[in-house]
Design a protein around this nucleic acid. Structure first.
Lengths: 335, 335
DNA sequence: AAATTCAATTGGAACGTTCCAATTATGTAT
DNA sequence: ATACATAATTGGAACGTTCCAATTGAATTT
């Protein structure tokens, strides 16, 4: 491959000739300038259609140093929440009149680094990054210092001089824990997540602080880390029951982990929502449809997207800014 | 936004000056030409590091009309199989030395059209498209006629003059059905899928033809269409049981549909794999881990990716080519 | 009718790279 | 040492756009 795109292309000059104006006027039309007469604009637009002209963004971006290409670097597309977030971000960005492209780091910092290095060459206007584990403040800061607008999403890198958009993780697990406590449950476990990611600490402390404030004793042995996958949820649930067979409720790091925990319960004749209450985090599409429907902390991907766009729009106060997006707790059958 | 990327950038001229050669030599180094001395190459590479030069692909692509940017247009990123496929494609393409970007049409033809229109402006070297419902042969052919290399994946558009990479859907459901028949089950339903997509017909006919060839009576009433979502699977399972309460086995259009069907069974005290055998299609990551583990038709995303890359590499016989990627049936506890 | 203002249009230069044809350096055979 | 072939390097032109300063056109004021 590599090559292709042969056949001399149609340029602004061709359009200019076809419409009887100069190339400069054509350019003004293309850039939506307001200093071009309606008559000229119409002629040009007609000629564009007739000639089959297609705008050459490379040439434009070379000359103008402007770009409307935004790169979204997702940590793990195979994770349903990440995918949902990516889709939401894409939609919002498109609405801003920018164009977004997606790449996937697969939670691999080396790949993330390579991807970003390549993307720089494509003159992207901004980076939206869900940082992979291993991302350092230095790494991000270098990118920022080179003049690229960067926004971090979902995960916080301490010391990085970038705007960050986060859901209110602490409030989320706080609400979830309060809800569970209000039902009268006492023996509660926190399942899933991994301390290498910032949101784990935030979500976990929402749980622990609420327990402490409510004078509920709890054991760190019931805070069980695991992969944030379905299978991670299964094993975490198994471990929790091994530690404390009388568990009454579990708060999960994510819906996916909760799905796994529920799988485990069902396979062991434990009825989720009856024998053990369970709540998730993320509120995936499926959670309200499954049976029992899963109580969860709802993160609105569109709200995250809107916050990111706000930062993109207003790069001035972009640095060292943090936007915490509010969440909602949704109680369902599982708790 | 829009703007940004200020501060006069470092160009080949700067690197040339720093390394004491001409800009042309620098360019040769950048393009990995073999007609440059090792000495010169080393000097240039050193200077590149020192000056912090970053390659300007816009300028390069403007001049050379070559691009190594491949666009992957995915039909629905929130579908786990699509996401898995996207990730596999990305990986393979990267290994080829090309760079891939992902965009999501969300099964919306209008969006797909807009996306592709934009992408054309970015001088992509090739399009890999999982066509959204509503995609016509004319639409694809226009793209091809404009000189863009196009490969369709997973779904076939009749009459489109493009290379298409498909899993062997027919063989997949054939094997699945044979497997189920071999267990002695007779009352078998086919759940999920929608006739607006080409793979539905292929998968369904694998089922119906195998049934017919084996002289097994079956009713079209037991071929139940649905959304290819978890919830679609739930409702399809419910409908199937309403038609025929004595169902012994179900073949599902996809794993996601199977997950939904299993949800339904579990909620209704039917034990999947014991009371009713069930097999899926796609073999998602989760399927081997769940309980009961789900028998499924395995589609290797890397194999699909490899086939796509082969077509990309060899654009010559790209038109009207079809590559059917072989699949494997994997029997597990659920059947 | 001339002078003034402002809107619309224009050609030339520039963006950072690769291609090309020409030049210079290097090595080999006479 | 000379002629020759070949390897390595080079400056100028080109890619298709936007920016800029300058020009033209139209409308308004004097």
């Amino acid at each position: 491959m590599k090559a292709k795109r042969t056949s001399k292309s149609v340029t602004v000059f061709d359009v200019a000739r076809a419409s009887g104006v100069s190339k400069s006027t054509v350019s003004l039309v293309l850039t939506n300038s307001n200093k071009v007469s309606d008559k000229a604009r119409q002629k040009v637009e007609k000629a564009i259609k007739e000639t089959g002209y297609v705008y050459n963004r490379d040439a434009a971006s070379l000359r103008s140093k402007k770009s409307n290409l935004v790169a979204i670097v997702i940590n793990d597309l195979t994770n349903p929440y990440s995918a949902q977030l990516a889709v939401g971000l894409e939609r919002q960005i498109r609405q801003m009149g920018l164009f977004s492209m997606l790449v996937n780091s697969g939670e691999d910092f080396e790949i993330q680094d390579k991807l970003v290095r390549s993307l720089k060459e494509y003159k992207v206007a901004a980076f939206i990054i869900c940082p992979a584990p291993g991302t350092t403040a230095d790494w991000t800061n270098e990118l920022v210092d080179q003049g690229f607008p960067v926004v971090h999403v979902m995960r916080e890198i301490a010391g990085a001089k970038v705007a960050t958009v986060l859901p209110d993780n602490f409030a989320g697990t706080t609400m979830a824990t309060q809800h569970v406590l209000a039902q009268g449950y006492k023996k509660i476990a926190f399942l899933g997540g991994n301390e290498s990611i910032s949101d784990y600490h935030q979500r976990l402390s929402g749980f622990t602080e609420t327990m402490t404030l409510s004078n509920m004793p709890f054991s760190n042995k019931l805070c069980i880390q695991s992969d944030t996958t379905r299978n991670g949820g299964r094993t975490a649930m198994a471990k929790a029951l091994a530690v404390e067979p009388e568990i009454e409720a579990v708060i999960c790091f994510s819906d996916v982990v909760a799905y796994g925990a529920i799988d485990y319960m069902k396979s062991n004749n434990i009825e989720p929502g009856k024998d053990i209450a369970i709540v998730g985090f993320d509120d995936l599409e499926d959670s309200k449809l499954m049976s029992p429907s899963l109580s969860s902390v709802h993160i609105d991907a569109n709200r995250i997207g809107a916050a990111v766009c706000q930062l993109l729009d207003n790069m001035a106060d972009r640095n060292r800014n943090k936007i915490i997006v509010s969440i909602d707790f949704i109680a369902r059958e599982s708790s």
